[in-house]
């Protein structure tokens, strides 16, 4: 990549980014999070590994990929999953570039593992004509489809007025057949696995 599409993006300091990882105190401070947390504690199902009677602690976040034991997540956990994805153009993460932001993750989830839940993520491209917006969106979708249980419907949109072809990008990112076909494209998969290689 010789010509950068956005040569000088705004960059956030990693320490300023919200995260669940090893920062329990942050969570306690937040006003609305305790409510969410108690909900998800309530709904964490007993898996074969959890011994009877023990309440699975949220802090031992088992959100590594391929781990399908948990059933409920909150916005911060989703943020942790996707903010560490690398930008396809810069050696920075989507969190650092503020492409993904905690306040732009919306979750509609009853917490019941037998019900369908919905995650809506709005991404903010670094520049309004960013041609990589669909690739970034696809990377987020692949990451979440690999990590979240199948009951989550993932809706990815570019944030209003942040992209010239907002509707086109949104339509493409949420078209089931196009996404499936993209995931069978080896070249595209290679780029995406590079983007995801920085994920914890």
């Amino acid at each position: 990549m010789t010509d950068l599409i956005n040569a000088a993006p705004k960059v956030l300091n990693v320490d300023q980014l919200p995260t669940r990882e090893g920062k329990e105190d942050r969570i306690e401070q937040s006003g609305y999070l305790p409510g969410l947390l108690s909900l998800s504690v309530f709904n964490v199902p007993f898996t074969e590994k959890s011994s009877p009677g023990s309440t699975p602690a949220l802090s031992d976040s088992s959100l590594q990929s391929d781990d399908e034991e948990f059933e409920s997540v909150d916005a911060l956990e989703i943020y942790d999953l996707i903010s560490s994805i690398s930008d396809p153009e810069h050696p920075l993460t989507l969190g650092q570039l503020a492409v993904v932001n905690l306040e732009d993750i919306q979750l509609d989830d009853s917490g019941n593992p037998n019900e369908i839940a919905e995650v809506i993520i709005k991404i903010t491209p670094t520049i309004t004509h960013c041609s990589l917006a669909t690739l970034i969106g696809l990377g987020i979708r692949v990451r979440l489809e690999r990590c979240l249980p199948p009951r989550y419907r993932i809706i990815i949109k570019v944030k209003e007025k942040t992209h010239q072809s907002e509707n086109q990008v949104n339509k493409q990112l949420n078209d089931k057949e196009r996404v499936s076909a993209a995931c069978e494209n080896d070249q595209l998969l290679k780029v995406i696995s590079q983007m995801l290689s920085s994920c914890k």
Binding site: N114, E115, I116, P149, P150, R151, R153, K176
Partner: peptide, 8 residues
């Protein structure tokens, strides 16, 4: 609802 569980 849930004719194929939580799947589409």
């Amino acid at each position: 609802p849930h004719s194929h569980g939580v799947y589409e």
